[in-house]
Design a protein around this nucleic acid. Structure first.
Lengths: 185, 185
DNA sequence: ATTGTATGTCTCAAATTTGAGAAATATTTA
DNA sequence: TAAATATTTCTCAAATTTGAGACATACAAT
């Protein structure tokens, strides 16, 4: 059982690191409403914190994605759930996505995380191809592009949640409508 | 006339700061292929560099946006040009957009930059409303949401340019097609 | 009330980052 | 080529960030 404080530090760290990987740890401590000393009690050093964040984010994000895939056997519903899962994971999703995209990252399917990433994106591809065969998705668009679009919509929806006055539900519906229409034939 | 080196430093700084505002200056120097010493000759300190970046990015991004607006008097063409301008500005666009969105930013239309930002977004809104009246854009979507979507598509297209094998032209076309279909009635 | 655990405060040394001087080298311009 | 300018290299002190010890407080569980 992970203590609530530790959890809070990880959450803040994910949020802060997400657009400022070199941010001073003080910034994360402030954000989590703890002293820097407390942060250092939970994490040996910056490196460990980053690693833990990556793992935490991978785990929760992967879990949500896999659940989304398994929530239905209709490809369209699966895709919709994946979009919502991404939005719900918030900053974690961008982190997750970035992580496996950046050039320093040496992809390696022996690694459990990479294997899961592969699992998710194989399924994603599978869903898209199926929808294309059913004539529900534009065949002029590569799955590669649709993946980019998918993550773009997730990201901007997450950002939007912070600035807009709309309810989460409304925003998600807008996101899904826009996405679906964008990739429709 | 700004020296090429200074220009290069600013470019790198915008790129690096864009997802790591606290990055060590060494990282920017490396990216710009100069020594940290050279960087320090052009910029008194980190703060000055950040300020100069903001200004540079505002100027070039604004110029491109305004040019896009004025490039045509067909609303749809204007919107398309604005999307491409955003993509061409690359990292600058996200920076520009973020800058005026973050809560520390105190919007103030006495400020020339804010005034220009307002000018651009007034026009953007105008274009959307006009397209909605012509039945070319979905009236269920607020301009607020369309703006979010717009910047989301720009951002992910810029990211995509770095990872994908597709040509810039192809990607831009995909972006525009997806965007237009997403907001169509 | 007492014990144990978690967090905060204050402190400090080590590590890193920052900004700049001085002289050597490279590059441009006349 | 010579002079002028820009950049690099090496160096160093100041500032900031990092990680941790020692002890004080707060708070929950028994």
């Amino acid at each position: 059982m992970i203590p609530a404080t530790k959890e809070r530090i990880i959450e803040s760290a994910i949020k802060v690191f997400n657009d400022d990987l070199s941010a001073p740890l003080q910034k994360i401590a402030d954000n989590a409403d703890v002293t820097r000393r407390t942060l250092h009690r939970y994490f040996k050093d910056r490196n460990e914190l980053v690693t833990v964040c990556e793992r935490a984010m991978e785990v929760s994000c992967k879990k949500a994605m896999i659940a989304a895939i398994q929530s239905s056997d209709h490809a369209l519903t699966q895709l919709e759930s994946m979009l919502y899962a991404g939005i719900d994971c918030g900053a974690k999703y961008s982190f997750f996505y970035k992580l496996h995209q950046r050039k320093e990252h040496n992809h390696n399917n022996q690694n459990k995380n990479c294997a899961d990433y592969d699992y998710i994106y194989r399924h994603f591809n599978h869903i898209i191809v199926e929808l294309q065969q059913n004539g529900k998705v534009n065949t002029d668009m590569s799955t590669e592009w649709i993946q980019i679009l998918h993550s773009g919509i997730v990201q901007s929806t997450v950002n939007a949640q912070e600035t807009t006055s709309k309810s989460d539900k409304e925003i998600k519906e807008l996101a899904w409508t826009s996405y679906m229409k964008a990739i429709a034939p």
